[in-house]
Design a binder for these strands. Structure first.
Lengths: 217, 217
DNA sequence: GCCTCTGGTTATTGATTGATTACTACCGAG
DNA sequence: CTCGGTAGTAATCAATCAATAACCAGAGGC
């Protein structure tokens, strides 16, 4: 054995074997992030592979095609979103949350999702891809699914649902243009973000720069 | 003169020479539409060329690079948006529009822009491209420009501006997922679109299917 | 009638990129 | 121990695409 081989053995195998299901979820997580940042067409399977620390062909083979991977990504994001909402609804149904707080709590649940930016951004990238026959179909269905959930399960008046969704789309857009990462103290940007992100502002700004919460530099 | 030549003269030359400035604007218009539908990375210069009825290299040579073309497209969209808003503000300053109607009129001006879908959609595609160093920079600056216009020139309270922008982003998202073209009578979709597009609903649905306004098929 | 500027075109190329193929390594069961 | 299934990789390919180069045509001044 050469010393090189010895070294390789000593330096901890960064890539270890992993059960397929676990690897799959790991890829989906990284794909969410990359797709969310660069969009469907703007992302290469190679970029996702690098983010996940594996080879490009493995990404493709595990999901069949890039398109199928993307659909799974937005399906997963949609799932996480509805789970978060339904959890709030469950707490409401058990009396843990009074009716006059339900709206605020659902809003809070949405804003909390900002922390995993991949979820909201990849969803938004799915929405913007509405012209695509496959992706668009899922995007529309997903959007309406959320609409119905808020109207029929949370029993919000239709226009309140509309307003709720509008606020969500503004949040998505502000994240998409990268305002928290590039506002550089701009007064208008700060004001708009304060109004839009509310109590979560700190978290949003820290996620951008990797500073601990509370540190305004 | 041969009869062929005569024919050609009669059948209007589909491609005639055109002053550069005019050709430029024509390309920008078609590029808005295609970029707006398929996104920056998802659009090829060839698709834009075909839409504009010219060759692909001509598109590239006229704008230098695909990226520069895209930046010009969102710059143009931003321009049309601010012109529309400032026209309302001008009418307000001359007393043609009372103060208590200003918000509704600005909203109307935005919704009116739906008719040229390329404008709103290409802008949105610019927003979603926020990670790009060149495009993102322009997208952020443009968004904040609109924010300041509404706050400092229309004198809206900050939270009303936020709410106004949120409504706009919802409209953009509904158009992006292609809901007006693919709702197929879905009750929830109809309700949401009615609330979001208001009086412009007819126009939106007709632009989708090329039916004259009023015809609900 | 020639010349040149403007408004185009065709042909081509070098890089990317999603996908396929064929191979290797590890691990647990019998 | 070996055999098969699972978890991967390296090598390669066929398309696609933005960009460049080289060329062509009409119109108008001189």
């Amino acid at each position: 054995m050469s010393s090189v081989t010895n070294n390789a053995a000593v330096e901890q195998p960064v890539r270890e074997r992993m059960p397929a299901a676990e690897r799959r979820e790991l890829i989906l997580g990284h794909a969410s992030e990359v797709f969310g940042r660069r969009g469907y067409a703007g992302t290469t399977t190679e970029q996702i592979a690098q983010a996940a620390g594996i080879s490009q062909p493995y990404v493709v083979r595990m999901f069949g095609t890039k398109e199928k991977l993307f659909v799974e990504v937005i399906e997963r994001a949609l799932g996480k979103l509805t789970v978060a909402f339904r959890e709030v609804l469950r707490q409401h149904s058990t009396g843990e949350i009074p009716s006059d707080e339900l709206g605020a709590r659902l809003g809070q649940a949405y804003v909390d999702l900002i922390e995993d930016r991949g979820i909201l951004m990849s969803l938004m990238q799915g929405f913007i891809q509405g012209h695509d026959p496959v992706i668009g179909e899922r995007a529309r269905a997903g959007f309406l699914e959320i609409y119905r959930l808020l109207r029929d399960e949370a029993h919000f008046p239709a226009d309140e649902v509309r307003s709720f969704l509008a606020d969500g789309m503004l949040i998505n857009t502000l994240l998409a243009i990268g305002l928290p990462d590039n506002f550089e103290g701009d007064e208008a940007a700060t004001e708009l973000m304060t109004l839009s992100f509310g109590a979560k502002l700190d978290t949003v700004l820290c996620a951008a720069t990797d500073r601990p919460p509370g540190d305004r530099g």
